[in-house]
Nucleic acid binder design. Sequence first.
DNA 1: GCATTAACACGTA
DNA 2: TACGTGTTAATGC
Length: 252
Amino acid sequence: MPSVSFPSARQASTVRVSRSRAILPEELSAIPWLDRLDGQERARVVDDLRVVSVEPGELVCRVGRPVTYWFGVIDGLLKMSNDTAQGMPITFTGLPPGGWFGEGTVLKREAYRYNIQALRKSLVTGITVDTFHWLLDRSIGFNRHVMMQLNERLGQFIAAREIDRLGSANARVARSLGSLFHPVLYPGVGSLLRITQQELGYLVGLSRQRVNEALQVLQQARLIGVEYGGLRVLDLDGLRRYLDAEPAPTVA
DNA sequence: GCATTAACACGTA
DNA sequence: TACGTGTTAATGC
């Protein structure tokens, strides 16, 4: 056995609300939809927001648990995944700073339909289901934001299907990065995405070594810059469109 | 063939 | 010191 291994969702522990604290003023700027609210709405939200620090491997929410919060990432990196009947985990997307998730479940007041697990130590916040619905009932700005997010996410999942069908390992890495750099869904990610090659491996389901190889290829293609502990995007559209520039198999 | 794990050297925070 | 990167060797499907 390796000296350290990432815990599967099954064995991972779930974060408890009792560990949370109130949000700090300097953390409010990490919430992209706050400035769509008026003063009264904003006051209620700030009062309602809870913040919790999540250790690597811990679950923020678990499949089947009743919905409690609409969650957002202040700092760190999470992954959204599910387990197949055979027990193989399928990753749907990564969640970098600025990302919010669970609105579909919150809207219907149902149980979570996926696991959200921290890939590294992260700062996660959230508002209660009641406050979410209260905002939905009175704030047009909030409604526009949620609608925009649902629409962008739909586009992401359609793109993700293409990756699974057509993707080589290099292409899967490229397209995953294209999703993570999404400026609308994840405004907290600048042109520099803080992610290790190991974390990217967990996200796309490849070994660290294979991810490293893919990143070299993408750097050669001038799509990204590889830096210590992170990646810089140079050509976002190129990443999203990436298909292997490989073979040109000459016909004999 | 292609990806994986294990192991190592090296540089950085 | 602990962590992240880049690389090679051995192994598996």
